[in-house]
Measured scan of single mutants.
Amino acid sequence: YETDHQDYCEVCQQGGEIILCDTCPRAYHLVCLDPELEKAPEGKWSCPHCEKE
C-alpha cells in the first residue's frame, strides 16, 4: 500500500524502526521523542508537532 509518510525520523533524519504520525506525514524513532516511548503506541497516534496544534 502506498503512503506519503517520510521514511526517516523527523528529529535525527535517520531511517530504521520509526513510528508514523496518524495526522501528518512525519515519522519518529521512539527514542527521539521527548519524552521517549518504550514501545509503539497502540491505535491512533499524533506526533508532538500535531499535539501542539
Rank of each mutant, 00 (worst) to 15 (best):
C24P: 03
H5F: 07
G16M: 14
I19P: 00
C12A: 01
C21I: 00
E38Q: 10
C32A: 00
Q14H: 07
L33G: 03
H5E: 11
D4T: 10
T3Q: 11
I19T: 15
I19V: 08
D22V: 05
D22S: 05
Q14S: 10
W45R: 06
R26D: 04
W45K: 09
V31E: 14
C32R: 00
C21N: 00
H5Q: 09
E42T: 10
Q14E: 05
I18S: 12
Y28I: 04
R26K: 12
I18T: 11
Q14W: 05
A40K: 05
K39P: 08
E53T: 02
G16V: 06
D22F: 02
E36V: 14
G16S: 13
Q14G: 13
G43W: 05
T3R: 13
D7N: 07
Y1N: 04
P48E: 10
P48D: 02
P41I: 13
L20A: 13
I19F: 11
E17H: 03
C9Y: 02
S46H: 06
C47E: 00
C47W: 02
C32Q: 00
Q13F: 04
W45M: 13
L30C: 08
E17F: 05
K52P: 02
E36F: 05
Y28L: 07
K44E: 11
L30H: 06
E38G: 13
G15I: 03
P48R: 10
C32F: 00
I18L: 08
K52S: 07
L33N: 04
C12Y: 00
C12E: 01
E42H: 09
I18W: 10
P48H: 02
V31W: 02
A27G: 06
H29E: 01
C9G: 02
I18P: 05
C12F: 01
L30I: 01
T3W: 14
K44A: 05
P48A: 10
E51Q: 10
V31I: 05
P48T: 10
G16F: 00
G16N: 15
E42R: 08
T3M: 15
T23Y: 06
C12V: 01
P35H: 02
E36Y: 03
H49Q: 11
G15R: 13
Q13H: 04
C12P: 00
E10P: 06
D22Y: 12
Y28G: 07
E10Q: 11
H49R: 04
P35F: 00
L37W: 02
W45L: 06
Y1T: 15
V31H: 11
H49S: 04
G15Q: 08
K44P: 05
P35N: 05
A40S: 11
C21A: 02
H29G: 01
T23N: 11
C9F: 00
S46E: 10
A27N: 11
H5M: 15
G43H: 13
